[in-house]
Design a protein around this nucleic acid. Sequence first.
DNA 1: ATAGGGTTAG
Length: 792
Amino acid sequence: MNNVSSARSFSSLPPDISPIARRLLAIFTRRPFAPDDPQLADLAPSLSTKVVEPVLRELKSWKIALNFFTWASTQNGYVHNCYTYNAMACTLSRARQNAAMGALASQAVHSRCKMTPGALGYFVRCLGSLGMVEEANVMFDKVKQSGLCVPNSYSYNYLDKYTLTSVLQIYCNMQKFDMALKVFDEMYDWGWVDPHMCSVFLLSFSKWDDVDKAFELVESMEVRNLRLNEKTFCVLIHGFVRASRLDRALQLFDKMRKLGIPPDIALYDVLIEDLCKNKELEDAFKLYLDMNEHGIVPDFSLLNKLTSYFSEEGQLTQLLKEIPKDVDTAAKTLVCNSVLSFYVNNDGLDKAYHLLRGMMGHCAVDDLNVNELLKTGERFYPDTTSFTIVINDLLKKGETDTSLSLFRDMVQIGCKQTVLLYNNLIGSLCDSNRLEEANELMQEMKDSGFEPTEFTRNCIYGCLCRREDVLGALNCVKEMRLHGQEPWIKHSSQLIKQLCDHGRVLEACEFLNNMVIEGFLPDIVAYSAALNGLIKIREVDQAVELFRGLCARGCQPDVVAYNILINGLCKAGRVSEAHDMLNEMVRNGLVPSVVTYNLLIDGWCKTNTVDQAMLCLSRMYEVETKPNVISYTSLIDGLCNARKPDDALTLWSDMLSKGCAPNRITYMALIQGLCKCGRLNEALEYLRQMQEKDMKPDTFVYASLLRALLSDQNLSAALETLKDLVKEGQFPCPQDRNYPILKNAIIQMSQDARTRFFSCCKLSDSASSFTLLLFGIQSNLRGFCGESTLAR
DNA sequence: ATAGGGTTAG
């Protein structure tokens, strides 16, 4: 028995088909197909497009045709042309084989097959008829770009209505307005334009930026008596509003109305909102009235939109007047809610609160605006939205308790609670550290069937962190993990920072480890807080170890993290290691900040290598990281300590000429530095400058000056300085480390004949008599010295 | 209703 079914009979083949074609047809239609049939190899050399094309047209099965097409493609010396491609495309499009069709299109483009405009049009039509507009678009573009075909009017000439519609759509997607219009005109001439086609055309227009051209087309359609349908109007109007062309949108709206098409609320909504945005409240209001006349009941969101642009109560009153008196209860509530919103948005929380209480029946509704609208004495009821409006504003103003009691009222009335309200209330309680109540409310939330959200739990978590309740925080984290929620890293970071600030560095590190165990890998910021904590307790090596560990775990350190380490190393006097760190961060692609350089500058200054520090300053100019006042302050201090006061003064003027203004700290550094170098007159000059600028020096600046002036035997200047100190009210207490210096200064002065006014005062160690003593000096200087004054 | 939390000078 022969299991090879017979090849199809080709007796009906056109007479001009070649014998080669016949043989190919026979082989390819035989089942099963034998790709290694020796006959195929014999036929291959005689393959030509003239042979392939008719074969493709004869093969009725798209699979076999594609098989043959592919086989032919791979034969040496054979190349498909646009006609064989089109024959294949024709089969595939008839069989609705989109995937194969798409592949064929890209093959045609890639093979750089030359196409006549007509052939391209044909292929595009095949794509178009499969709805493959995007692909057709791409093909059109690519073929044109590669110069394989220049589309001209022939590309779509002599095509039928459906093809032209596809071509039109393609031009629309390509945003080729003129070409599209040409096709449109041609279709019009053929009498092929119908409203559906117009909509297709215009809908693609609405994606274009050129609103005016689209509008032009609408008008040309009008002239031709082609009516747009309601949907097209809507889409166009929305599109025009999106393109910020309210003018055109309104014109279109007008046309729509004239045609007697009733607009829906969504159209009013978008137009009114846009008018409001453009501050054309009058027109918005007119449109609103128009809507009322058409019997369309405004919804809350629209009323809210309108009122949210009102800033005067008169506008609100006018709007309310227009609301029909016979609206139902639900509508009345909606209206009241927009009144509530208006109050809340216009600094009238009290009025809103009062109205809400009136609505609840807790007091008479004496709201003028509302009475304008509703017959007096009639009851109307608040809903959840009413409460939400008022409660949220109360919370914003910190009125947690009033909010809570409104929330209770709301539940009692039978209004449904919402997650949002629960969250906001819990958030507010947490903000005011009322954790227990917050927890109770969260429990109640659960009991009422609301699952706490990530936000809810993070409010609680944040509160626990601020309280430095490490255990509680960790439990909360576990709870969140169970619910698939993430603890917010800002809270974790704050906890770590606070713990570090309060000397609980090790607990902070422990907490970080626990977070890792819970599966919440803290980020570099959280770790930085801990690194800084370790640095502050001088555990530099531990900090470095932690740093290395987190790098190894794939945590990317940033500039700040490096800065913290550099700071630690510098403060420990390990400046060269700090410098290595800088190089490392640069190798890691980070750009050092001013802070980085400042830290190193300070490090070098404090380790007797001011020259290095100065070099660093000049490098900063090279890398275009402008030094700031801190850079200069460190250097001025460093130069003075290196006994180079002249360099310090030069740098001071450099700083001024660079437009960098010295601050209090800079002045104090310079004054103290000059004192150390014995340049007392200059120090006094800068003190004077400081006073002129209303910058208050710290006590120790006076102390340094006094000590230096006295050791220089400059008693009169010392006296003046002491006077300034008293005038500034900078009396140190006995615990202050400057106290002994000042005490000694006063003793010295009291022992000197030139400052003998002191002799009338007894010196004592107690703070109060010290104050009295200073007061005595002050009085003395005013010429009021005497026991009577001191006794005051 | 939700993106900021960590670093420098006397």
